[in-house]
């Protein structure tokens, strides 16, 4: 295999891992806007171990998963007790905090980052994906996966069924962070050089876009989205500085036309949200369900 093909396959594989990891959180209906932070945590944790302590990469990856999971659980616990808007704000802020901390931490090279990590192989990347896929297949068939879906569907109903929502969602968030951390570790050892700014808001948005483009209903939809978005830029290199504009508009169009992603059933019969909105009378367009009291 040519080095170029190998590099592409590695990149695609890592992005698939990112999308699958993000999907775990999304399957509970919780969107994080700072998942690149868990990637950074995994990348730095693993790089420290392989560079400074000469640990083998697979072991360092496991540690990266654990560290990222702990960070995910802490942030999840802080944010998931609150409303979805708070989750968005807190994860967004967390992303910046992590970037800032790594940039000011001299041990890991500050803003110049770390250099010299190697060892990411196709075997390592694709066996990680295999493990995660097996986990996800089992998850979607289990009562835990059903509980995730219940929380996504209707939290109030879920409390009435006795689901301990915060606990379940924090668990999902930690698992999601762990997979993202592993992807970060692999990315670091493929890139060979990492800086804090690699894991900034643009990377966070990319992770979301991988997952959301394909569709959040099935985990393989997220994987498809990641593959498409990793391969497309190769053909669209001529876009160069229009790149960010296209990406941004992709978000905008996607959210109007298919907020649930390209794969998966449409949200309800009777046309998409746009059609329903247009049909509705402008004055009474805001419908919110409210539980009556008294």
């Amino acid at each position: 295999m040519s080095p170029y093909a190998e590099a592409v396959l590695l990149q695609v594989g890592i992005n698939v891992l990112l999308a699958l990891g993000y999907w775990i959180a999304v399957s509970t209906g919780k969107y994080s806007f700072g998942h690149a932070a868990f990637m950074a945590i995994g990348a730095y944790a693993a790089s420290m171990l392989t560079l400074n302590f000469a640990w083998p990469l697979p072991v360092a990856m496991l540690v990266a998963a654990v560290v990222a999971a702990v960070a995910g659980a802490v942030i999840g616990w802080m944010a998931l007790r609150l409303s979805l808007l708070y989750l968005a704000i807190i994860t967004f802020i967390f992303g910046q905090l992590v970037e800032l901390l790594f940039a000011q931490w001299d041990y890991v090279g500050g803003a110049t980052g770390m250099i010299g990590m190697t060892g990411t192989t196709l075997t390592l990347v694709y066996s990680s994906i295999a493990v995660v896929v097996v986990y996800l297949v089992l998850l979607t068939r289990s009562r835990l996966g059903l509980a995730y879906a219940a929380i996504r569907e209707d939290e109030r109903a879920a409390t009435a069924s006795g689901l301990r929502i915060t606990r379940i969602a924090v668990g999902a968030f930690a698992a999601s962070a762990a997979v993202t951390g592993v992807a970060g570790a692999l990315a670091a050892h493929q890139l060979m050089i990492i800086t804090p700014s690699l894991f900034g808001p643009q990377q966070a948005l990319l992770i979301i876009l991988y997952c959301v483009l394909g569709g959040v209903q099935y985990f393989w939809g997220a994987a498809v989205g990641a593959i498409v978005l990793s391969v497309l830029p190769i053909w669209f290199e001529w876009l160069n500085d229009w790149y960010m504009i296209v990406y941004g508009l992709l978000f905008v169009v996607l959210m109007i036309v298919r907020p649930q992603g390209l794969i998966g059933r449409s949200e309800r019969s009777g046309g998409g949200p746009l059609l329903r909105r247009l049909r509705r009378d402008g004055a009474v367009a805001v419908e919110r369900e409210r539980e009556p009291v008294g």
Binding site: Y31, F33, L249, F251, M255
Partner: peptide
Amino acid sequence: VSDRFPTASILSSLGMGLV
């Protein structure tokens, strides 16, 4: 953007920010 997806507007406005 449908209000059934509470985070859709956040994503979309982040996209507008990029643009």
